[in-house]
Design a protein around this nucleic acid. Sequence first.
RNA 1: CGGGGUGUAGCGCAGCUUGGUUAGCGCGUUUGACUGGGGGUCAAAAGGUCGGCGGUUCGAAUCCGCCCACCCCGACCA
Length: 595
Amino acid sequence: MIQRWSATLIPTTREAPTDAESPSHILLSRAGYIRKLGSGIYDYLPLAWRTLQKVGRIVREEMDAAGGSELCLPVLLPIELYAGTRRDVDYGDLLFKVIDRKDATCALGPTHEEPITELVKGSVTSYTQLPLNLYQLQTKFRDEARPRSGLLRCREFIMKDAYSFHMNVEGPGGLNDTYDAMYRAYTNIFTRCGLNFTAVEAESGPIGGSASHEFMVNADSGEDTILKCPVSGYAANVEKCEIGKRGHDLNAAPTGELTEVHTPNLPGIDEVGKFMKVKPDRMLKSIVFSVSGGRWLVAVVRGDHDVNEGKVKIAVRAMLGDGSVTVALADEKAAREAGFAIGYVSPRTVNSVPSTLLLIDPDAAQGGFWASGSDKKDHHVKHFNWRRDVGNVLDDEAKVRVCDVRNALAGDPSPRAEGAKLETGRGIEVGHIFKLGTKYSEAMGLAILDKDQQKRAVIMGCYGIGVSRTMAASVEQNHDADGIIWPAAIAPYHALVVLMKPEEAKQQDAAKRVAAELSELGYDVLIDDRSERPGVKFKDADLIGLPLRITIGDKALEQGGVEFKVRRDGAASKVEVVAFEALATKAQGVLGAAW
RNA sequence: CGGGGUGUAGCGCAGCUUGGUUAGCGCGUUUGACUGGGGGUCAAAAGGUCGGCGGUUCGAAUCCGCCCACCCCGACCA
């Protein structure tokens, strides 16, 4: 298709709005793709909409190829729909709500587990109709506490959400089949979009195992940290990432006498450390959790490490041999009443507070000098020693375990390859696939008779792609100082034909000829026919980032051709004159076959 | 929700401390001329509820109060 710049709306600007900070926000704004209408609310202008359509087309093709069926559910959802799942409460303020004229509350859909479950409940009546994979592309709403980074975190955004329904997890037609198909579809989608991405293991679903993956676009500006093992290829997000084997030693000799230090009004590890002249990596951080059944748990990590709640939960369940125990950060007041000096807790509380379990991260379960809380407000201790100060309870496996309970960091041993070290990178989450299990079907009463005439809750999976976020993530990953650099597959147009003198018939004819030829090959062409100075047009060309720029000017025309420039080569790269006859081949070499 | 900050032309900003003609500047826009291969030059012009409401004052963009919007850091984030 062919479009003229003068006939569409591409309001480029020299400067970005002050509130734009991330590269995608700045460039998409400056290049005339998006405009902000309110906090976390953006207009998609023609260029952006074309890119979104292209991403959407790839998504649809791959979803259809993987057995999905597109449908479209309402955005406006009666709040009563959430009666079974209580997500109106769990989602909290994140759920956008509107009130109608009858004073009834509706939610603007943040995702669609409830309506899709409701739909299937009323329309699928036999196991023979399963499996089913239904998806939609639509605008979603979330009342984010703090929208930021332009399209990367908005209150209104475009998402592809898919839901699958099964009678079984394993075997043909089971959840695992579809999950794997979705994993492959997502890999195809992001590959076709021209993105450099990593699929990482994410927080496990209720079914366990590696039941969830996030697809992360690798970009330094990403909000999420991901960890990778360069040897085995293992990759996971911080919440999920396992750490390889680490040694520990609870029997080392003390470094000195246990000494109490008065540390008044010091809020954090860093401040206490500075005051005591102890580095955070020689301090013990003891975090108190409450465990169902009226028990307590103290998790100890090094001062420079962060406790991982998910790992704590898994460890406690293993320790108690009970998969149903719940673990939560302790309520401060209740913990104080139980005898924990919150802010000054030490591992010794395993002895002093009844029904207390102790989990020690290997890096904290070492000899040498340690500073710790003293279990007394405004006081810490120096020369803490595990064996001397905690005692033989350390050997009681029912009460004390040494195990991984912290977030992984760069340099930690890989869990999958001996001797390899984990590396970190930043990423932008653009896709998430998840094994839901029966959470929604049970809550909403979606059950079907199976072959054996047993009524069973339907097993579900859900699979999301942030479509508008994918566009922004691509810009985060593909840009330079002059502007956007689109991968050909999602560029709003493949080529920009720039006329040096748009009023000259000779150049007009050449532009028409070039555009028609490229269009016939299946490429989308934008003709810059504005009577602007060349400098302005070149700057705008770099800014909007179409993969190929073809300049029609006297210089090249005299040589019987046009100027050919690839955006990815950078603004300052040399242009090349290409004869008319050679243009098609040359363009295909750069852009690849169109669809 | 806690902390910090900002609202003045389409965009970016100055003016506010110390109230006083007609509220400025750069970019952009319009018209004309010269120009013509990386945001050109000259000339002229259009464009403002100074976020809103109220108060103080002879007089408010400027001082005071309330409200609203927006941004940043943190908390939060299927």
